[in-house]
Amino acid sequence: MAETIRLEVSRYRPEVESEPTLQSYEVPYNKDWVILDALNYVKNQIDGSVTFRWSCRMGVCGSCGMMANGEPKLTCAVPLTDYDPTQPIRIEPLQFFPVVRDLVIDMSSFLEKLSNVKPWIIRDDVEATEAVEFRQTPVELDAYKQFSMCINCMICYSACPVIGLEPEFTGPAAIALAQRYNLDSRDKGKEERMDALDAHEGLWGCTFVGECTKVCPKNVDPAGAIQLYKMGSATDYLKSMLLPWGTK
């Protein structure tokens, strides 16, 4: 008989259960599969009611983040062969989010946080330059490029100890995206964006444990973004002490 592996999948239907339970499924230990393929095998062949989000299956749409054995993972980017087939893989919804159903989290809070940091180019002279591109050298591009690689998969939120304690915290991905625009040579909205960030709780609770950066499947460095932000804010604070007429 072909080799198999057991998935222990968190099941939760809010209209029926008050607490999630684990349900076990035996699936082929296919060496070409990622975790998501194994879940789709369950959905297609064993139990059509197992519920999770997925779409691109190539690590770019950001839909399929889940906890695998307690670690947040993008399940389409993790081969089954990373796991020992004699032990089950426990699949649970990303932690620190409300659960809608089975492996599906409610991520609406992130959408709000993202909007709050104004993740768009802010400048008021666009009319005058409508016909031509803004110049941006490769060096200027590199200054923010890595922060633009965020796929909004929510894995960093699930790894962030501050989010665990303080769900209102703007969080790693949204701050990284704020910095993505702050560092863009075409943008003139840094101060406006910083005000929005300052208005929200939690940032100063970040202890630079850097879990967000460690787990990011796209090698974004949200911890670095937060550090940059704190340094910027601290500098502004000092300036406002030393220069009472303001920092502008």
Partner: peptide, 14 residues
């Protein structure tokens, strides 16, 4: 481009 798309660039920034 004005909306921020990070297009790859020539050395002169175009």
């Amino acid at each position: 481009e004005h909306w921020g798309c990070p297009w790859s660039r020539e050395p002169d920034g175009t």
